[in-house]
Design a protein around this nucleic acid. Structure first.
Lengths: 252, 252
DNA sequence: GGAAATGCACTTGTATACAGATTTGCAAGC
DNA sequence: GCTTGCAAATCTGTATACAAGTGCATTTCC
């Protein structure tokens, strides 16, 4: 599949949204972007519409596009949806996983364990944090892969990405959220995350769909609460109103 | 919100896909469509991309767009996702519903009951069928509304629409799927659907989230099996091979 | 001085022209 | 007969010009 200009524009803009270079609310004007990216307005327009479908950008007719701002209501809704999907997918993973899937999940888990221990021991975190986040993502992706449902996997990954808008600002080069709270708090949080992951892995490994689902739901609930706390404290326009005037008619 | 030309093109094409006028696999060429709709290629292109995001159209770079064809694998995945979302949303509806929500659900349910009885009694169905389908949709929408999660509601309705591609062909004017099977079979099926809906409503009304969820999951499971049977029999490029009876029994 | 009106700058939405890719039809070669 | 190569036809992707809507600032009027 050949890469066309609209894909170039899409990748360019998306990267900058996820890295935090374009913060929530930032205006995305087609002419400006087309100049920077080096393509015409048409593919830029297309890229913006695709990003809107991803949930990273909001577009209002004749008023232009901007990086999505999420309010608390929408964040809760998104998390609730993620809870439903990822919980179900985890149950499927417990039933459908192959041995290779299981190995991949455990690799990610072991990687996280090592990094977490080193992070707790260390004073300076930054180089290890990127790796930890990468392994965390790897863990979740491995489970979604084991569930053997590409559609759900895609949708869940999409939600993960949109979630990152809330957890910003992030390290511009790595895309990893900057640390929050005191070190003991962060250490405690990391231990809890690891314990959750252990529980999820064990349940999947022994094929216990119900326990796996519950463990994943608890884990996501933790993440939700963390997100809500961040939104409450950082504010910075995140909690302001947000109108999605998308009225889809659902009948013929 | 002003209606722009790309919206006109979107509505035009979408309507024809859902009505079956553009069947699965039908090529959607920008120039031809722009001529018929009376706008230029640019808004048509945009509309096609939006329909792709909806899951109704597939686009391959430089090869053009066509109405989405669904294979069995994708259909199962979609249904499984719907199961997860709609089950969860039903549980939420049991917890979050207002009295007005409950009334709206019961109105739809009562409407369906009356229509079902008249349909079973009648010989000629066509005028009543449209109404029955409308009330069925109304029932499901009312529950999603009661769940108080607009994001999930939107996603579920999207999946409902994509589902309709499988249940085609439909009555061109009303968009209602044409009847299948013998009359006793259809009557039996309608009674079962109604009983399912009753069960779902009762559980929601008494705030029993677990029972509501389970009832909705069973109901959707029924729909899934019906869809798989239709796919197996209608074929028409939808499936590559004949299904075994085992495959017809859907179990995630 | 403040509110309404008006004009301007800017941006989006749309039409259209053009370049490149893909398919199709046909003829030549094995 | 079937494949292979080539060229025309066709369609997509992109650039660009133009029209129309929106917000802002200045002006005008009370």
């Amino acid at each position: 599949m050949k890469k066309v200009n609209s894909d170039v524009a899409y990748d360019y803009i998306r990267k900058r949204i996820l890295s935090g270079e374009y913060p929530p609310g930032h205006a995305l004007m087609t002419e400006e972007l087309s100049g920077v990216i080096g393509v015409s307005r048409t593919p830029v327009r297309e890229a913006l519409h695709k990003l809107k479908a991803d949930g990273l950008v909001s577009i209002r007719a004749r008023l232009g596009a901007s990086v999505k701002k999420m309010d608390v209501k929408e964040f809760r809704e998104m998390c609730d949806m993620r809870l439903a999907l990822e919980g179900h997918a985890t149950a499927l993973a417990a039933l459908n996983h192959s041995q290779a899937d299981l190995r991949e999940i455990r690799f990610a888990l072991d990687g996280m364990r090592g990094l977490t221990e080193r992070l707790i021991a260390a004073e300076e975190e930054s180089p290890l944090l990127d790796e930890l986040v990468r392994e965390d993502v790897r863990f979740h992706i491995a489970i979604m892969t084991a569930a053997k449902n590409d559609l759900m996997k895609g949708e869940i990954l999409r939600l993960h990405l949109v979630n990152r808008i809330v957890f910003g600002p992030v390290n511009p080069t790595s895309g990893v959220p900057v640390s929050r709270g005191t070190k003991p708090e962060r250490d405690e949080n990391r231990r809890r995350v690891l314990a959750s992951h252990d529980e999820i892995y064990d349940a999947i490994a022994r094929g216990d769909a119900i326990a796996a689902k519950r463990a994943m739901e608890d884990h996501i609930q933790d993440i939700i609460e963390k997100g809500l706390r961040i939104m409450a404290h950082s504010g910075a326009g995140l909690i302001t109103r947000e109108l999605t005037d998308e009225e889809l008619v659902y009948n013929g």
